[in-house]
Design a protein around this nucleic acid. Structure first.
Lengths: 144, 144
DNA sequence: GTTAATTCGGATAAAATTATCCTATTTATA
DNA sequence: TATAAATAGGATAATTTTATCCGAATTAAC
C-alpha cells in the first residue's frame, strides 16, 4: 500500500511524537533502533519530513528531532503519506490509467472510489497524538 | 496500491474477457495494444496468469489467450491480484511490521483493518463479467 | 513438409526504490 | 577554542521492479 520509505516515515513520526510528548528530543540513532529501520535511509526520510515542516530538527550536540508539543495532535497521517509517497494513492487510478474520472472511468473506478475515500478519511482523521498515546501506554507497538 | 504488473494483469484479464465473451481468442499483440502496455512484459504476466489457471493460452498460429466463457463470471479480481502481487495487501501490516495482530497491533492496526477489509470485499465481489460488459457497452475504458 | 503466426522461457538491460558511506556543517559543553 | 555529538547532503551501491531481446517450441494453413 505504502512504500517502505513511507512506512519508516510514519513509524519515525509516531516515535518522535511519543518522545516529544514528554518535552524531549530524540536522535536519529535512537529512532532507527526503536522502529527497526536502516539508519542512513531513515535520515533521508526525516530530512524530507523536516523540509515539509512536519517535524523539526536541531543540529549539533544534544540535537535531534522533535515535534512541538502543541502540534502533535494537529499532524495527520495524510500529511506524512503525502510528503513521502505523494497523492497518487488518493488521486490515482487503481489500474494506472492516466485519465480516469466520472466521464471516462476505468472498469473498476466506482469500486475503487469507495476504498480510496475510506483510506483518505482514515488518514485525514488520524493524528500523531492518538497513536503516540497508545505506544506510551503499551497498547500498540512500533517493532516486531 | 497495486504493482504495475498487477495493473497490467487486471486490464489484460478484463480485455481477454470481453473478447472471450464473443467466443473469440486474442493475441498478446492485440492485448498489449488495447490496454496500452509493453508487449514483452505483458507476456510474462500472462504466462503467470496461465500458470495460475486464471486464463488459458493456445500456442501456435491462430493461438492466443482466452477465458472459457462459462468461467468469465467466476473469476474474481482477488484471484488476479493474489496471483501477481501475493496476499500482502490483505494480510500485511500497513506499517510493514513482521508481527502485527490483535495481540500485538501496530499503531494503525485498527484503522487499517477497516480499509483492508473493504478492499478485500471489493476484490472478492467483483468478477470479470461485470467489468467486461461495461467495456463492451462503452461505459468504461481500458486506456487513456 | 514448409511456412508463418503464435506462446514459452531464459538471459539481459533499464529504471526505480532501498540502502550505505563519507564529508561538511552545526552546536553544546568542557 | 577544542572536542564531541549531531544533522545535512552528495555520491555511490545493492536490490527490486519494470522492460526488452531472442531463440525454442507449437500449431494451423497452404
Amino acid at each position: 500500500m505504502f512504500s517502505k520509505a513511507c512506512q519508516y516515515g510514519l513509524k519515525a513520526s509516531i516515535y518522535i511524537a511519543t518522545i516529544s510528548y514528554d518535552g524531549k528530543r530524540v536522535s536519529l540513532k535512537e529512532i532507527a533502533k526503536e522502529i527497526d529501520s536502516p539508519e542512513a535511509f531513515t535520515a533521508k526520510i526525516l530530512q524530507d519530513l523536516v523540509r515539509h515542516n512536519i517535524i523539526k530538527s536541531v543540529k549539533g550536540a544534544y540535537g535531534g528531532f522533535e515535534i512541538p508539543k502543541n502540534e502533535i495532535s494537529t499532524i495527520k497521517l495524510s500529511q506524512i503519506v503525502n510528503a513521502i509517497d505523494g497523492d497518487n494513492i488518493y488521486r490515482g487510478c487503481g489500474l494506472g490509467l492516466h485519465v480516469c474520472d466520472e466521464e471516462h472511468p476505468c472498469p473498476v473506478h466506482d469500486q475503487f472510489k469507495a476504498v480510496r475515500t475510506q483510506l483518505k478519511n482514515m488518514l485525514e482523521n488520524t493524528n500523531l497524538e492518538q497513536l503516540a498515546l497508545d505506544i506510551k501506554s503499551g497498547v500498540s507497538f512500533l517493532k516486531l
